[in-house]
Design a protein around this nucleic acid. Sequence first.
DNA 1: CGGTATCCCCGTCGATACTG
DNA 2: CAGTATCGACGGGGATACCG
Lengths: 223, 223
Amino acid sequence: MGASYHQFCPVAKAMELFDERWTLLVVRELVLGSERFNELRRGLPRMSPSLLSTRLHQLTAAGIVRRVTDGGDIRYVLTPAGRDLEAVVDALGAWGSRWTGRLGDEDLDPKLLMWDMHRNVDRSAIPQDRVVVRFAFTGAPRGSRRWWLVITPDEVDVCDVDPGFEESVAVTADLRALTEIWRGERQWSEALRSGAVAIDGPVTLRRSLPRWFASPLAAQSSG
Amino acid sequence: MGASYHQFCPVAKAMELFDERWTLLVVRELVLGSERFNELRRGLPRMSPSLLSTRLHQLTAAGIVRRVTDGGDIRYVLTPAGRDLEAVVDALGAWGSRWTGRLGDEDLDPKLLMWDMHRNVDRSAIPQDRVVVRFAFTGAPRGSRRWWLVITPDEVDVCDVDPGFEESVAVTADLRALTEIWRGERQWSEALRSGAVAIDGPVTLRRSLPRWFASPLAAQSSG
DNA sequence: CGGTATCCCCGTCGATACTG
DNA sequence: CAGTATCGACGGGGATACCG
């Protein structure tokens, strides 16, 4: 746990838990629905596994997380106290959207963007059963420019190598542009018009693709 | 500034600012109305002046605080971005009230309690012009057991030495009990009945004293 | 009153490797 | 998949002294 502030103020008591690096981002991942260790890691790629482990222990000790085992299956779930933190995460996210300004180049991460988009696919907006979307990012480092989302009724997979299936539609995008769209700071329509993003494929897919991805960030900043 | 998380998520961008020790408590003080350097220090007694200085610089660079000078007068005021943080502080305070459990002994601080009470006196609830309240804390370290609040129409002063004026009413209290009352976790009536707190003085003053102090913490946890 | 300067320690965190 | 072990650096921040 973090050091005590020696204050009786509830804000101080709360911040004793949350003023340590990564802690609230772990909570964010749990609020977003991740439950397994390596699932959490994918949402927190720059966090070392040992530190994630430490944080999960701390959050468990604080009564925010419960480690649930079922056979070999291990999941981390929020307790009622943890679920109540959604209000804190939301308040921080709302403030961050409004006031943190333009993203730095170091904040752009195709892998993380794909991971976040993949878990917010709105299947009901997709007019076919199985769709393969290829993403090509300009302005991303070599080796993380090409990605595929394989969307089936049951699941959505992220691949960084060609999965082999025939691609249904291709998105070519400036990494920053697509990130800003995802954050709700830019419109698909504007980005397509300006050429920052291009969609290639059958017209029905091309037209509906922007609605396949239901960004919780954009929903938040507009709501 | 804190190190980057390399994430585009608004929660991460916000936490880059607030995951450093003390930062959000400085914001809390500003939200509560403190404006001068040494006024902030009184609300953050365990924070070194150099660190407070650093934090104020960081908050200024982040567009959360503005340093306003008028002659020799220097004040720190929240910008619109800073005022928007009130929602974050409130969410944290609400969560902290509900879930941080019993205070540790190290969280009890008569000086801080007096400072917080003094700035939340509801003058309109006091039936006289000038009132001197003496506080005697049991369960506090020698040297910080006796305090006085001198309440006049214009201001409220905290003293740790006898101010000389005749005392109007005296409160004898277990430090933890009064702190818990202040946090809204206990009722004056119950504490008086149980003997954890005693009020001595003229009956009119004795009866109305609990309403003189309008705790923002109690208001929050009940609302 | 409103800060800065300095110093040093200790703990956090990051990196990497490794295990059941 | 689900973590633990180890190790080193680096810098945050606590304490104290001091200045305009």
